[in-house]
């Protein structure tokens, strides 16, 4: 069962383009959407939400077609975004008064509980809030109308590490109910290293992979060794390679092959998502 189905989505801008991306976001799991800045993650999400119109392709969310059924779909979707376009001069209470009537399943009790939990005062004006508090407010709203799909676009970029950890716990709580799905787009991959179930990696407008996170981390490996181990053929096996006067460090996407190749002459480590993102973005052809 897929919460989101993207088929052959394309969009061209003058500076970059999203190029024929197809991917499925599985229902009941947390999918992390990673990629360097400007890779197309935000554009992809904006197309899912109907903010940007794709030049080609189709999107289905929660079993219905976007944008023809967008009203029904968005009743069941909660959105937390880095660009929080709230009305700056309104208070949180007034902002809620604007938003709540649109949702048929608005749960006032839940909302108040979250406001308390996040320590947000309803009379404060939006322009007085810090970035982190705005995100918390967006989260309180997103979680108060029985949404089954939570789409988060760079929600943690302005947040301190303490709240980021608390957020992950909160998300894990939400995922106790297997009818919920979370799509979490970020370039801070450490957030996803632990709790993400699936990872979709977008680089330069293309989809590099969309796979079970555990499998990705098992498949890739960081290889560290001495200069003398490299030659032209071996260099070609690396996705990205960083050489220095005291050795090399690189990423391969076939751990077993690397183990056979290097044996005990090199150190093999499990990469982090950040490693994979870094080395893929810096060098080598795109793994299609």
């Amino acid at each position: 069962m897929n919460a989101i189905e993207v088929r052959n989505i394309s969009k061209s801008y003058s500076q970059f383009s999203v190029d024929n991306i197809s991917l499925d976001i599985k229902k009941g799991y947390i999918t992390g959407l990673i990629g360097p800045n400007g890779a197309g993650k935000s554009t992809l999400i904006k197309m899912m939400l109907g903010i940007v119109r794709p030049s080609a392709g189709s999107i289905r969310m929660l079993g219905a077609e976007m944008p023809s059924e967008e009203i029904a779909i968005k009743q069941r979707v909660g959105i937390v975004s880095d660009d929080c376009f709230y009305y700056e001069h309104l208070s949180l209470k007034d902002m809620k008064k604007v938003i709540a009537p649109f949702y048929t399943k608005w749960n006032e009790t839940k909302f108040n509980r979250y406001m308390e939990q996040f320590e947000l005062s309803p009379t404060k004006k939006i322009k007085e809030l810090s970035k982190g508090m705005k995100i918390k407010f967006a989260l309180a709203i997103a979680l108060s109308h029985e949404a089954e799909l939570l789409i988060m676009d760079e929600p943690t970029s302005g947040l301190d590490p303490v709240f980021r950890r608390e957020l992950l716990d909160l998300l894990a709580d939400i995922m106790q109910d297997e009818r919920n799905t979370i799509l979490f787009s970020t370039h801070i991959t450490t957030d996803l290293d632990r709790i993400a179930d699936y990872i979709a990696f977008v680089n330069r407008g293309k989809l590099v992979f969309n796979d079970v996170k555990d499998d990705v981390l098992d498949r890739y490996a960081i290889v560290k060794g001495g200069q003398d181990l490299l030659d032209a053929d071996i260099r070609a096996k690396f996705i990205g390679l960083r050489e220095s006067s005291v050795g090399f460090e690189g990423l391969v996407d076939d751990r077993k092959q690397a183990q056979e190749l290097f044996g005990s002459y090199a150190v093999l480590e499990t990469p982090s998502l950040e490693d994979i993102m870094y080395y893929t973005a810096k060098g080598g052809p795109i793994y299609a």
Binding site: I51, I71, F102, Y103
Partner: peptide, 11 residues
């Protein structure tokens, strides 16, 4: 406004 409104259930 428009970018904000469109994230809510409306077309």
């Amino acid at each position: 406004n428009h970018a904000f409104l469109i994230t809510m259930p409306m077309n």
